[in-house]
């Protein structure tokens, strides 16, 4: 996968001797990134695998990636690209059947299920924007850069996604209260 870092140039490049340590970088960002991908995909183990893969790709070219102004932006973009590919494959019947298999694991909390369910009901682009904005705490500009679209498009996705997600969440709560 080729990732173009169009936004990597503005900040000064660190000297070679001050390259950030990969282990620190990994432990500082793994969890946060996994939570974002988990919210997007609705599958925790899949999210862990994809984020681990994104870090593998970063490590295999760490000398280059660590010199980017924002190495995290690179890893996040790779992880999200992997997640998008995986998400599209999940639409196939094979994945549908795989999800039907019986599993005996401790279930997630009702809140987590409610949000995952609500997110699954909104369109993919809106979901990506909402997760990156609320969970990833990215600005509209940063989301636009990552997604390769205009800021106005991101604002539109956010507005529609926020409304749809809000409706889903209030609808679910209304249903639970009834």
């Amino acid at each position: 996968m080729t990732v173009v870092m169009a936004h990597a140039a503005p900040k000064p490049v660190p000297a070679a001797e001050s390259l950030p340590d990969f282990d620190e970088f990994y432990s500082a960002n793994y969890l946060r990134l996994t939570v974002q991908i988990y919210a997007y995909l609705g599958d925790q183990h899949e999210a862990q695998d994809l984020v681990q893969e994104a870090f593998c790709r970063a490590f295999s070219r760490w000398k280059t990636v660590s010199e980017y102004a924002e190495p995290l932006a690179w890893v996040r973009r790779v992880a999200w690209n992997l997640a998008t590919s995986r998400f599209r494959k999940q639409k196939t019947a094979v994945n549908f059947l795989r999800k039907q298999r019986e599993e005996h694991v401790e279930g997630p909390s009702p809140d987590r299920v409610a949000l995952t369910r609500a997110l699954s009901q909104i369109p993919e682009h809106h979901r990506r924007a909402v997760v990156l904005y609320y969970l990833g705490q990215l600005s509209v500009t940063e989301i636009a850069l990552q997604e390769g679209v205009a800021e106005g498009t991101v604002k539109s996705w956010l507005s529609r996604g926020r409304a749809a997600l809000g409706n889903q969440l209030t609808g679910q709560r209304g249903g639970d209260d009834a």
């Binding site: 997630p108 609320y134 969440l169």
Partner: peptide, 17 residues
Amino acid sequence: LIHGAFGDFTDDAESTI
């Protein structure tokens, strides 16, 4: 509402990841 939902989600997910 969404901030609260994502906050709960993050707390819950981080404890299991």
